[in-house]
Simulated assay, not measured.
Amino acid sequence: MCQGRVRRLTPPAKRFLTLLAFISPWILGFLGFFVYPLLLSLYYSFTEYNLLQPPKWVWLQNYSSLIEDTHYLNAVGNTIYFVVFSVPLGVLTAFLIAFLLNQQLRLRVLLRMIFYIPIVVPISATAILWMWIFNSNWGLLNNILALIGIQGPAWLGSPAWSKPSLIIMQLWLVGGSVLIFLAALQDVPRSLYDAAEVDGANALHRVWHVTIPMVTPAILFSLLTGLIAAFQTFANAWIMTDGGPVRSTEFYVLYLYDHGFRFFRMGYASAMAWILFGVVVVVTVLLFRTSARWVYYGGEG
């Protein structure tokens, strides 16, 4: 009677199984805490679900209802306003600060630390600080304006000034982008500046034709991360204004949160989440597609 051969694993197969065993906790966590909720939210977006009763299939009703929801369209408009103004201003501010810190200044290290500190402060503390700064009666900003004879607006209490106020606050949090720009500026070869100076370029021409082209990868990164963060802005508006006054700061994610966790309309909120996901993907792809025209990488000819 023949005994069957015992097939032994080859060394590559053993290495693969060992690797799989080591990363299996991450795989299980990724599937359980990311993939499964993601697919579940996609399913919920086609249902009417209030957390208390089983989901009821409604197909595209949630998506079609969004088009007729005036408050939803208002949230979309508020978010577009915030994205259009906060992202370019944030990138420009971060670049200017980094350019300044890249000069031979005294206390340069201290200044870099000061500009970085705001991004490590919890957003709740930052929001409370800026609520005091923007207070229309005894706030710091209006007191400074009063010293020069200007009567400050209501800021967070005014529909006209509430979104600009949050944009100003957002500029306080550009420390991360400042460090990225600072690293990019220090990577610009000194020989390029010397060559431009020999060709007769003044300081402004050197910045425009040497500095900016060489830091375009950092500009692309800051634009991309800024766009994604701006589309998802939530905490500052939720803490400082809760969407007011008169829904002027009711941004997309804040409106989504209200429907999901205040009104328990999970299907409706899931539909909004997937639309936001699609918009962010489209904007990201378009940004990458257009970047080939204006982003220069040092290794290119």
Rank of each mutant, 00 (worst) to 15 (best):
A75P: 10
S291R: 07
Q3A: 12
V282L: 15
L20N: 09
A184P: 09
A94R: 04
L40K: 14
A273L: 09
A98D: 07
W59P: 00
Q3E: 13
Y43A: 10
V174A: 05
N142T: 14
P213K: 06
S124Y: 09
H205R: 14
L73P: 02
F251A: 00
V281A: 13
I114Q: 06
Y49I: 01
H209N: 12
V253A: 11
G301C: 00
L42A: 14
A13T: 11
P217R: 01
I148Q: 04
A154D: 13
W155L: 05
Q104C: 00
Q61H: 10
S65W: 02
L17F: 15
P25V: 05
V281M: 15
L111E: 00
Y81S: 11
D69K: 04
A127E: 09
G4H: 04
P118W: 07
L286H: 01
Y255P: 01
T241S: 08
L38M: 14
S64Q: 15
A273V: 01
V174N: 01
A292M: 03
V215G: 09
I168G: 08
P55D: 08
G243W: 02
A271S: 12
H71S: 12
R293K: 14
T284S: 15
V83P: 12
W294Y: 09
L173R: 14
I212A: 03
P54N: 11
S24T: 12
E197K: 13
A203V: 12
A160V: 10
W138Y: 15
V246K: 07
Y81V: 06
T249W: 01
L107G: 00
Y63R: 11
F231D: 07
A75V: 03
F181N: 07
I239M: 06
F231R: 02
M113H: 04
R5D: 08
V76A: 13
R289V: 09
A292E: 15
Y72P: 04
L276D: 09
A292W: 04
N62H: 11
N137R: 12
W59Y: 13
T70E: 13
A184V: 03
H71P: 00
W138F: 14
A125T: 13
H209M: 01
I150Q: 11
L171I: 02
L141S: 02
L92Y: 08
S162E: 04
W26H: 12
T233A: 14
F85R: 05
E197I: 00
A146F: 07
